[in-house]
Design a protein around this nucleic acid. Structure first.
Length: 928
RNA sequence: GGGGCAGUGGCGGAAUGGCAGACGCCGUGGACUUAAAAUCCACUGGGGAGACCCGUGUGAGUUCGAAUCUCACCUGCCCUACCA
């Protein structure tokens, strides 16, 4: 063969050619339908890992497919380049975050270019560049002006490792740890900036205009946590109001005590002198306890009586006020009315402290009222109200909110008596955006003794990050110690003022980046209205599920807030002139979303070793070490020889599991001899340790480097493998053997195409069969691209390869039919393996570029089978298969089926009771 | 405790009411080779000489027909959690 497949030569050449030509430059074209496809932008950690490839390459393939289908496609890329990693690197390695970030981005750009994407690099942006964060700051000012940003002192979550506050969404898990570093958070009282996300709670619950995965919608819905009920105002004996939220206002007549969160502002006032010491003690205890301690104690209720009393507004009963840490200051009003009869937590608390329980409902289907002393747990089900004055006899049907007649009746009474009103409460909190860190966009505000909080005028943006800063992790922003940054003059009065030294949560930068791609160098606004009117909104977004309640909520909030601040106004006229109807187009950032899965590390057994040496206490000091092939070669229970499977290696120490299941720690030294088959001068570094299926991480040693794969196999093969290996939405553990399949496929295609057309006598039947297969492949590949079923898409193309190999062996189609098949196959492959498709396209005498070819048209007539296998079933079991013409009539099919050998044998002369004919599947089922 | 998703060969997976296991990896046998790699050919869910039988986490059900629909259970993963 004259020409061998050398991806290392082909791929860089085409990558350069395409870029020099601007083949993938996306320009506004009102005559063509646009498609804005986007993948979540990477953080510039410094190395593109296999997860980036897995997220981007299939997305790129789909964008390419849409492009060939005739859409004007925009597929941009940028960097989420503010953030803690850069700052931590600065502290650790004494490199400036800017230097570190820029260097990483430069390297990653090069890596990304090997992937063969249709990224339009002219539109790249990085969120840490001043011409980007100027507009992040501008959005802050817009939100501030429109009342969507406010500053408040509150108990906020603080990560002691990252030395900064976190938004509620960024605190994860049972132990409430930092999303980024895993350290449990602590509470701090701080003045912080918030965005009013809760104003949008109701709108964020509405997912009806977006095609997003159910899972994401459910997670967001649960996160927002809407509950319907009522606000009720109780009063202390002194007349101070205590507002509570309840989902069960119908049970108000059973409220026998109140509980305040220990941090509640009224606690001090209510507490009587006798109780003061006990209360102070309890508050101190609660503050001291970490979240972990609280959970560790399970649901054991603790609390203290304040000595104070409140009046139940519906029946004027005098009820005691307690404090307890099961009431959270951060939810609702930080105070509850306790109804031990109908709420399990209140029930437990009442039983613990001997408080009154008043039944207020007769459970459905029972003919006697419940007796408080006999109850084992609270009753939360439906029934008829009792002991509840004006609402006695009304039904609580178990439905939530006003759908329950009893709840509706209770709300009416509250509103009539003006002691409360129907209300909706959300679990969602306002978004805390202040971060006490350097490497982020400065919040553009100043504090003036004369004028108070003053926004920086738009014309003075951006507020630049100073370069010369000490990166000491103090828990306060390093900017606070930068005199030149800190001290400024008040924009209003010109007097001395200090700047806000906190920076913004980096999720703020990524909340609007889809807009900046449109015009990354535009100077008169965050994006060019001309571009926006054409490209917006994003048609297809792809990325990981981990951002369901973070980035994906924030960007939805941001888009809606932008709309309400009038940011999209300038686009309207342009859109109208273009003939685009933008109704509802500013409500959601991304119309469709697809979540790809994650690639996990490859599992592997550790080396089996036999070690000679001696035990020194618990450890075994090795003099020689040998890798063996069988567990039977390892002696057990000896003093000078041990061994087993290597489970872990830390420096020169090995953790080994012996054949009888014990764990031994083996120390090796400079003079320890190593005998490892396949290595000349073996050393400890060549010992392989056991790997479980886990997330990839450097410390685990299970990281797959895409650069190495590209060097070895070429980007086309890596792309194809990532699309073929798993269901894209699922992901799974890496399999280093599996890449052989796609590697052979790509190489086969090369050899098939370079081998040229067959030259034997053509067989019309074989020609028809080949054309049929080609058109069936067009349909299946198109369907697969549409539905993100990339694995079956590649499988179909592999199957076509198999058929072409058969044709080569049989040498029985004409050059015309052959060439048509090759042409179509290359076009179908172009989105998946862009380099080899282009190279072979040109080599087979076609015009540059294959990536400007239209997607092949599917012809159902050519794809139709003319003969099918008729499956004959008796009572649902396959008993025969017969070849019949595809257009066989029902009668003929049934007749042939009844006469078939297998059917006759299994019917044993019985009469068919019923015969079912399935046309589409070519099947006859005979019931006897 | 609440909510969601999933369970198919040794492995990744295909089939969403109609021939279970497409496509690929691994494996086995053979060809080529002094040999190996690569490549090519054949086989590759289990049982059985075979006709056939069994088989999609378990058990029931609906149906002429169930991996697919319904119910219960088991297992795993994800989210959430004293949310009033």
């Amino acid at each position: 063969m004259a020409d061998k497949y050398v991806p290392q030569e082909i791929e860089p050449r085409w990558a350069k050619h395409w870029e020099d030509d601007g083949l993938y430059n996306s320009e506004i074209d009102p005559n063509r339908e646009k498609f804005y496809a986007m993948t979540m932008l990477p953080y510039p950690s410094g190395d593109l890992h296999i997860g980036h490839w897995y997220a981007m390459a299939p997305s790129d393939a789909r964008a390419r497919w849409l492009r060939m289908k005739g859409y004007n496609v925009l597929f941009p890329m940028g960097f989420d380049s503010f953030g803690l990693n850069a700052e931590n690197a600065a502290i650790k390695r004494n490199i400036h975050p800017k230097t570190w970030t820029e260097k990483n981005m430069e390297y990653m750009r090069q890596q990304l270019r090997t992937m063969g994407t249709i990224i339009d690099w002219r539109r790249e942006h990085a969120t840490s560049h001043p011409d980007y964060y100027k507009w992040t700051q501008w959005f802050f000012l817009q939100f501030y002006t429109h009342g969507l940003a406010y500053r408040k002192m509150s108990a906020v979550d603080f990560c002691p490792q990252c030395n900064t506050t976190l938004a509620r969404e960024q605190v994860w898990g049972d132990d409430r740890h930092c999303e980024r570093c895993g350290t449990p958070v602590i509470k701090k009282d701080l003045e912080q900036w918030f965005f009013r996300t809760t104003d949008y709670a109701e709108e964020l619950l509405d997912h009806s205009h977006i095609d997003w995965p159910e899972r994401v919608k459910t997670m967001q819905t649960n996160w927002i946590g809407r509950s319907e009920g009522a606000h009720v105002t109780f009063r202390t004996e002194a007349g101070d109001p205590i507002e509570v939220f309840t989902t069960r206002p119908d049970t108000l007549w059973g409220a026998t005590f109140m509980v305040l969160a220990p941090e509640h502002p009224l606690v001090d006032q209510i507490t009587t002198d006798e109780q003061r010491a006990a209360v102070a003690n309890y508050i101190a205890e609660a503050a001291r306890k970490t979240e972990i301690d609280r959970t560790a104690e399970g649901k054991e209720k603790t609390g203290v009586f304040t000595g104070g009393y409140a009046i139940n507004p519906v029946n004027d009963e005098r009820i005691p006020i307690w404090i307890a840490d099961y009431v959270l200051i951060s939810y609702g009003s930080g105070a509850i009315m306790a109804v031990p009869f109908g709420d399990q937590r209140d029930f437990e608390f009442a039983r613990e402290f001997g408080l009154a329980i008043v039944p207020v409902l007769r459970p459905a289907g029972q003919d006697a009222d419940p007796v408080a002393d006999k109850m084992a747990e609270a009753y939360e089900g439906p029934g008829i109200m009792i002991n509840s004055g004006p609402i006695n006899g009304i039904e609580h049907n178990g439905e939530k909110g006003s759908k329950s007649p009893a709840v509706a009746a209770a709300i009416k009474i509250l509103e009539d008596k003006e002691i409360g009103h129907g209300a909706v409460n959300y679990r969602l909190r306002d978004w805390l955006i202040s971060r006490q860190r350097y490497w982020g966009a400065p919040i553009p505000m100043v504090y003036c003794d004369q004028c108070g909080i003053v926004p920086i005028p738009e014309s003075d943006l951006p507020v630049l990050l100073p370069d010369d800063v000490d990166f000491m992790p103090t828990g306060e922003s390093p900017l606070r110690y930068h005199e030149g940054f800190l001290h400024t003059t008040c924009p209003t009065c010109g007097g001395p003022a200090t700047r806000e030294t906190d920076t913004m949560d980096t999720f703020m930068c990524s909340s609007w980046y889809q807009f900046r791609y449109l015009s990354p160098h535009y100077d008169d606004g965050p994006f060019d209205p001309e571009e926006g009117a054409y490209w917006l909104p994003v048609d297809q977004y792809t990325g990981g599920i981990e951002h369901a309640t973070m980035h994906l909520m924030y960007t939805r909030f941001f888009t809606k807030a932008m709309r309400d601040c009038g940011v999209f106004g300038p686009m309207d006229n342009v859109a109208q002139a273009m003939g685009r109807d933008m109704t509802g187009m500013y409500d959601e950032p991304m119309l469709a979303l697809f979540n790809q899965g994650m690639i996990l590390g490859e599992p592997r057994d550790g080396d089996l070793i036999v070690v000679e040496g001696a035990f020194a206490g618990e450890k075994f000091n090795a003099t020689s070490l040998k890798v063996v092939t069988s567990i039977d070669d390892i002696p057990i229970g000896q003093q000078t020889v041990t061994g087993g499977e290597v489970m872990r290696r830390v420096e020169t120490t090995l953790n080994v599991r012996t054949p009888d299941g014990r764990d031994v720690v083996i120390d090796t030294f400079d003079d320890t001899t190593f005998d490892i088959p396949g290595f000349e001068n073996a050393n400890i570094n060549q010992i392989k340790h056991h790997l479980e299926v886990e997330k990839m991480s450097k410390t685990q040693g299970n990281v797959v480097a895409p650069d190495e794969l590209v060097n070895e196999y070429g980007a086309d093969t890596v792309r194809a493998y990532l699309m073929f290996a798993f269901r894209w939405e699922q992901g799974g553990p890496w399999d280093s053997q599996g890449i052989q399949g796609p590697a052979r496929w790509v190489e086969d295609v090369w050899n098939i195409v370079m081998g040229g057309a067959p030259n034997g006598p053509a067989d019309p039947k074989a020609e028809r069969a080949l054309r049929r297969r080609v058109h069936q492949t067009i349909q299946k590949v198109s369907d697969g691209m549409e539905t993100f079923s990339f694995n079956t898409t590649v499988a179909e193309l592999m199957a076509l390869r198999n058929d072409l190999k058969t044709v080569i062996r049989d040498q029985n189609v004409s050059a015309t039919v052959w060439n048509e098949a090759i042409e179509t196959m290359l076009t179908l492959m172009a989105p998946i393996t862009p380099f080899i498709a282009e190279e072979l396209w040109i080599k087979t005498g076609h015009e540059y570029s294959i990536h400007n070819q239209p997607w092949p048209a599917f012809d159902p007539e050519i794809a139709a089978e003319d003969e099918i296998t008729l499956v004959v079933q008796i009572n649902g079991k396959v008993r025969d298969r017969i070849q019949v013409p595809a257009d066989i009539s029902e009668e003929d099919a049934i007749k042939l089926a009844l006469e078939s050998e297998g059917a006759v044998r299994h019917m044993e002369g019985k009469e068919p009771r019923k015969v079912i004919y399935i046309n589409q599947r070519g099947m006859v089922n005979i019931v006897v």
